[in-house]
Design a protein around this nucleic acid. Structure first.
Length: 786
DNA sequence: CAGTGAGCGAGCTTCCGCTTGACTT
């Protein structure tokens, strides 16, 4: 029998701690929360003080049973969940669920997984902080009320299965508002002037920029004309020391940002890889908002920097978290053994480890020191002056190990920009000058990582939820990760050379975007509805405000259910009101575009049961049922024109006969298609279905037939319904409309009819396949039933 | 897998934060 049972949150942590504590301690893990509100039921008793009804999730039942039996045979139980609101609640749930009436229950905490930290924790046990637990309950209940009251309003007013919540709805709002700023952005242009001067040796060139931008071409031209007569000289040379400091060690959000910028990983990908590194013992915990490093780690880092770079490169620093609502229960993300330069693993794991390691080392290194030189150039009688900037690195410091990227698309300016030697009052000859029209840049669309950064700044969401939140808003189709093609524009360049000014018109592409978060029609309509009806909840500062109240609860100054009550009394009537109107009474987000000149029927667009749609005619019209059409990819209910909608109703379009059957063009659930003899061929992306000619349609049909023929490996005369084919995932059997997987390593060519039938019979029974394909992506719902 | 969208109604969808695997295609 083991005397002491320690329970932590993560199994990897349990393993390490077990080693530190020795034989008298058994260390187990709770795998996060062990109890929660039911995923299907409201589970908050509004009438009785908002009492939450907790249950043990089915997939946690066995774990809780095991923990119980371990607890029953131990004398002292140490609850060592994280030192934050959630961790305190986990400890409390454990103390409630495990049968431990007559046992000693000690609550202990540590911020780092080191032997001294853990021994110290064991020396200083306390009891559970009930105020902190209450703050967590308030957070949990508030989120449940918001999510489970708001979402049904959306089902009723807009479309089923939608969702809203304190975090996700603000994330969507940020993206929708940015898109509006982009749409409303008025670009302006200014003329930026640069010049090349020759030094007195008549050979060396000095490049400089004018400290003024002209708003019109005329002004720029006049200035260049003055320049052509100017007598330039060096007015002053100013030298200033410059320095740059390293960024702090990684937290979850900064790791996600840098991994996206430097390695191109998605937020979810970064977390998956980091999880593996953590489990393999290479890095500390990856879900953290702290920049703290343990004394042990700082010691290791100091030794490494001294040895590999020298004493002058070492500068021990302490970083402080600026993010709102940070709870700092863990260390920063760092290598467990910084001396380990390379790890075993996949290429992705190695790259991420290297990034974490270099960032951690750099964080304890000296500043980079530079000397910045500015040469001021002027001519008598001329307003404004030119200046040439140079920067020389005097001491590289942390910069030799790691440099942080920025989100700007602009290339980084070079750091070592040497300037030629000049003297004050040295006469310079203007070799040439250019005045180029430059445009102001529209705000940038968010990437996954820059959205995480924004959310963190607002104190919305936690390290463990950034990646899932981004997944949710994409899954609900509020936002898609997409590309936008750049547009072309002309700009003017005036060139002064040999006393002549030449004007050229050049073209540039601008505004192209790749893999950026773009709101969908559904996202826009849902957001506008929420902003209008529930502005307080989707307010960017809502979380910060309630966090303040949670803090007061944690300090014992407020009662948690009173906080919830005053919120609910204001919130619930708004829910009732919003839910009292039906979809038919008021169509959220509907746009009426006009009337069809041919029929005189009303043309409108809105969000329908299956997404954005167009409607011809109205339901009030008794004589004529309305016609409907889905909006094709790339079209939006916000911007689509009457003409474009009328084109949609021109389908299905008859193209004529081929082999005795008619060819029709239409748009279905999976996009535009050509239909012939009950067979469908997709029309490739980028082609307007209305532009497809009779000849092109036949071409598409023939191509499809050819591809189909090629895909058939084997066919049996006795059973023409059964075919062995090869597809994207390799060979498979097609039989009566269903596909069957062929086991790896089987030679599909050699299969006999009997072999195939056997494979079909032995294939696992499919569960409600037809249903799951209709409700596009309801994977999460299946998990819950299991 | 491809002409859905009205209406009838049953039953379902939904939140945020802690944690890892177990699952197909």
């Amino acid at each position: 029998m083991i005397q002491n049972l320690v329970i932590v949150e993560s199994p990897a942590k349990a393993k390490t701690i077990g080693k530190f504590l020795g034989k008298d301690f058994q260390v187990l893990s709770s795998y996060g929360h062990i109890r929660d509100l039911s995923p299907h039921k409201f589970s908050v008793d509004i009438e009785h003080g908002y009492a939450p009804k907790y249950e043990i999730p089915t997939d946690k039942k066995k774990l809780v049973k095991d923990l119980k039996s371990a607890a029953s045979s131990a004398e002292v139980i140490w609850l060592a969940s994280d030192e934050d609101r959630e961790g305190e609640a986990i400890a409390w749930h454990l103390s409630e669920v495990l049968d431990i009436k007559d046992k000693t229950v000690n609550r202990i905490v540590f911020h780092e997984i080191t032997k001294p930290a853990i021994q110290n924790a064991i020396q200083n046990p306390r009891s559970i902080n009930n105020d902190l637990v209450d703050a967590q309950q308030a957070r949990r209940v508030l989120d449940r009320i918001v999510g489970f009251e708001l979402s049904p309003v959306l089902w009723k007013r807009i479309k089923p299965s939608l969702s809203a919540g304190r975090v996700q709805s603000v994330a969507v709002r940020i993206i929708v508002e940015r898109e509006r700023e982009i749409a409303e952005f008025k670009t302006q242009s200014q003329y930026k002037t640069t010049a090349q001067f020759l030094l007195s040796d008549k050979k060396t060139i000095l490049e400089a920029e004018l400290n003024h931008k002209f708003s019109t071409e005329e002004e720029a031209r006049q200035y260049l004309e003055l320049c052509s007569k100017g007598q330039f000289k060096v007015r002053d040379i100013v030298k200033k020391p410059g320095k740059r400091s390293p960024a702090g060690p990684f937290t979850t959000s900064t790791l996600q940002q840098e991994a996206a910028r430097k390695l191109g990983y998605s937020v979810a990908q970064t977390m998956r890889i980091a999880q593996k590194l953590y489990e393999d013992g290479h890095i500390t915990y990856m879900r953290t908002d702290s920049m703290n490093l343990s004394a042990l780690a700082i010691n290791d880092l100091s030794n490494l920097i001294r040895e590999q770079y020298g004493e002058q490169y070492l500068q021990v620093r302490k970083y402080h978290q600026k993010a709102k609502g940070a709870q700092e229960a863990h260390e920063a993300i760092r290598p467990t053994y910084v001396s380990k330069e390379k790890i075993a693993g996949t290429a992705q794991e190695k790259k991420l480890y290297d990034l974490i390691r270099k960032r951690t080392i750099a964080s304890q290194m000296a500043d980079m020191l530079t000397e910045r030189t500015t040469i001021y150039i002027e001519s008598e009688g001329l307003d404004h002056h030119f200046s040439a900037l140079g920067e020389v690195v005097l001491f590289s410091g942390f910069y030799s190990v790691y440099k942080e990227d920025t989100d700007d698309d602009q290339p980084q300016e070079e750091n070592t920009n040497l300037l030629p030697k000049v003297e004050i009052n040295e006469a310079l000859t203007l070799k040439e000058a250019k005045s180029t029209e430059r445009f102001t840049q529209r705000p940038a669309r968010y990437t996954e990582a820059s959205l995480v950064k924004k959310l963190e700044e607002l104190g919305i969401g936690r390290p463990s939820t950034y990646a899932p939140t981004i997944q949710t808003i994409q899954q609900r189709e509020y936002v898609i990760k997409g590309d936008r093609e750049g547009k072309k524009r002309n700009y003017v360049q005036l060139e002064l050379k040999d006393k002549q000014i030449n004007k050229t018109e050049l073209t540039e592409t601008y505004g192209a975007d790749k893999n950026k978060l773009i709101p969908t029609d559904i996202g826009i309509v849902v957001n506008d509805f929420l902003v209008e009806q529930f502005g307080g909840i989707v307010d960017l500062n809502f979380t910060a405000k309630v966090e303040d109240e949670f803090d007061h609860i944690a300090e014992g100054k407020l009662q948690w259910n009173k906080v919830i009550d005053s919120f609910y009394k204001k919130f619930h009537p708004k829910v009732e009101e919003a839910a009292s109107i039906s979809k038919q009474e008021e169509r959220v987000g509907e746009r009426i575009l006009g009337t069809d000149p041919k029929t005189g029927l009303q043309v409108s667009v809105r969000i329908g049961r299956y997404g954005p749609m167009a409607q011809l005619g109205t339901t009030e019209d008794e004589d004529q049922k309305p016609r409907f059409a889905s909006l094709p990819q790339g079209k939006s209910i916000v911007t689509i024109s009457l003409e474009e909608v009328l084109d949609l109703f021109a389908m299905p379009k008859d193209l004529g006969e081929f082999e005795g059957k008619t060819i029709t063009i239409g748009i279905g659930r999976f996009g535009p298609y050509v239909r012939h003899n009950n067979k469908f061929v997709s029309i490739p992306k980028g082609t307007d279905p209305l532009d497809v000619t009779y000849e092109e349609a036949i071409e598409l049909i023939k191509n499809k037939r050819e591809a189909e023929e090629k895909s058939i490996i084997k066919i049996f005369d006795e059973e023409p319904d059964l075919q062995v084919r090869v597809g994207r995932f390799g060979p498979y059997i097609k039989y009566q409309g269903s596909n069957y997987k062929i086991a790896k390593g089987t030679d599909a060519q050699q299969l006999s009819l009997d072999d195939c039938k056997k494979i079909i019979e032995e294939a696992p029974k499919k569960k409600s396949r037809a249903k799951s394909s209709k409700t596009t992506k309801s994977k999460s719902s299946k998990k819950a039933t299991k």
